[in-house]
């Protein structure tokens, strides 16, 4: 019978991918996912760190999903999407994908470290822009949540884990290396609490860019939630969140670009599509937006009035 120490050694050896004869050298475990483990590794040829996503076992379904994810990510070259460098099979038969190593933390952990409302909205915009790029290519992420948005050490915002992404053929996007959702109707894909209602019901054929919009809306509500000492949630922003997280897909923004556009307009003090403002609100918004010009104008008028007053007296 094996000793305790031998048992532990064998367990470690089983759990660690066999990279012998490859360009990769395992450094440490970086995290665990549903399909396998992410390892921080060294690409010994290029002397750089990579994230090696390795399947736990060499089952055909998992291998196909990982390769599918790698191909999808390879087709999404965008600064907000972690690039894939390589994919293949290790000597032990396990399928892997080598991705850029992001030195940072998921938004779920980094959120308390973020600054005021404007900074948090800008982080949201960066993530939404990456998703908008994917939507433009016909790709729906289907599992957007704070854990899948990484904040890099140098301010990068990256959308990760495209493992359950679907490619929609009717989007008018250019040819993509993979197609379809990889799942059948009735399958629930996503994370409870972040899924759109149609995803929760397993209506795979109804899941499209607007389902990502729902998850982004949830993300926006988390990021926009006022902290102690901050003013209450702006009505325009609340309307944007409400539109993004509407129960019916038809009522939501068409895609992430439309949602990001409204958030950007809100940040710029411009009218947003989700909120019809009254004349007083419009004046107040314009006053805030053009406060510098208004102050200058006011200063000019006061000065002119003073000059006139002095001349008359």
């Amino acid at each position: 019978m094996l000793s305790d120490a031998a048992l532990d050694r064998l367990q470690t050896s089983l759990g660690t991918p066999d990279t012998s004869g490859t360009r990769y050298r395992i450094l440490r475990k970086a995290g665990e996912g549903g399909m396998g483990t992410v390892w921080e590794a060294e690409d010994t040829v290029l002397s750089r760190r990579v994230a090696l996503k390795v399947l736990a076992v060499e089952d055909e379904g998992g291998a196909a999903r990982l390769l599918r994810e790698a191909r999808i990510v390879a087709g999404l070259e965008h600064p907000g999407i972690v690039p894939v460098h390589d994919a293949g099979t290790l000597p032990d038969g396990r399928v892997f994908a080598a991705l850029k190593f992001v030195d940072g933390a998921p938004l779920s952990a980094a959120l308390p470290m973020l600054g005021g409302p404007a900074e948090r909205l800008r982080v949201f915009l960066r993530a939404a822009e990456a998703v908008a790029f994917a939507h433009a290519r016909g790709v729906v992420h289907r599992d957007l949540k704070p854990e899948n948005v990484m904040l890099g050490a140098f301010g990068e915002v990256l959308v990760v884990d495209w493992g359950v992404a679907a490619v929609r053929g009717d989007s008018g996007s250019r040819a993509f290396p993979v197609s379809g959702s990889g799942t059948k109707d009735g399958t629930v894909v996503g994370t409870p609490g972040w899924m759109a209602p149609e995803q929760e019901r397993g209506e795979i054929s109804r899941v499209d860019a607007r389902s990502d919009v729902f998850a982004l809306g949830r993300l926006l509500s988390v990021l926009a939630e006022p902290r102690p000492g901050e003013p209450g949630l702006d009505r325009r922003l609340a309307a944007i969140v409400a539109k993004a997280t509407a129960q019916e897909p038809e009522t939501r923004y068409e895609n992430a670009a439309a949602l990001a556009g409204d958030v950007a307009r809100h940040l710029e003090g411009e009218p947003v599509s989700a909120y019809r403002e009254g004349p007083v609100e419009r004046l107040a918004r314009l006053a805030v937006r053009h406060r510098v010009a208004l102050l200058l104008l006011l200063a000019y008028l006061v000065t002119r009035a003073l000059v006139l007053f002095i001349r008359k007296n």
Partner: peptide, 29 residues
């Protein structure tokens, strides 16, 4: 050899991949 034994001994109905994942999910970091 471990995978072969698992495949032999995991009854139909029990997910083999789940058993294997529990074993091979990751080593000690």
């Amino acid at each position: 050899a471990v995978l072969a034994l698992l495949a032999q001994e995991t009854p139909r109905g029990d997910a083999l991949s789940g058993e294997a994942r529990a074993l091979f999910g990751g080593g000690k970091s």
